[in-house]
Write a protein that binds this DNA or RNA. Structure first.
Length: 156
DNA sequence: GCCAACGTTGGC
DNA sequence: GCCAACGTTGGC
């Protein structure tokens, strides 16, 4: 197993939970992920200390707003068991949970939001297959290669 | 607010 | 196991 730090991009709607909210609370359980591919990245890929690009989606200027880090390994998402939660999953049981999450820790805000529009303009450097700029991109958690990570931050 | 893309569900 | 219907995501 490689000890090298990995990098990820995680989306959040700032109306629901923004980089400022993360700064306020410090560490946050990343609940509500209900997509198997995204779950698998958290469960199987993430290690404590990994770098996270915090992306603001579904907002006026979507883009990368800050940097966070992975603060725990994966554990069951409590909201799946809670009938009052928006994220309740009646098919999940404590014996066999479906959904896992990791804790995410605030590192810093970027000096400016790096807009999606600008990121798209660098498709050549990032590679056309970069998940953020692929057509119909809906995945909310996905890996970012270290050179892509460096490149994106160089735009700051 | 619109709508394309796409994941999930459930009938068959 | 197929696939139509449906719900959600997220850019614009």
């Amino acid at each position: 197993m490689s000890k090298r730090r990995r990098y990820w991009l995680m989306k959040s709607e700032p109306d629901a939970f923004s980089i400022d909210d993360l700064e306020r609370v410090g560490t946050e359980p990343w609940d509500g992920v209900r997509n198997y591919q995204a779950r698998n990245f958290m469960r199987d890929g993430m290690k404590v200390g990994d770098g996270v690009l915090f992306y603001h989606s579904n907002t006026k200027v979507p883009g990368i707003a800050g940097i966070a880090s992975v603060a725990s390994t994966a554990y069951p998402d409590e909201s799946q068991f809670d009938p009052d939660s928006h994220y309740y999953d009646p098919k999940a049981t404590r014996e066999e949970p479906r959904w896992q999450l990791v804790d995410i820790r605030f590192e810093r805000k970027l000096r400016r939001v790096i807009p999606l529009e600008e990121i798209k303009a660098h498709a050549e450097e990032l590679g056309e297959e970069f998940a953020l700029i692929r057509r119909g991109n809906r995945l909310s958690v996905f890996p970012v290669a270290s050179d892509q990570y460096e490149f994106l931050l160089s735009l700051e």
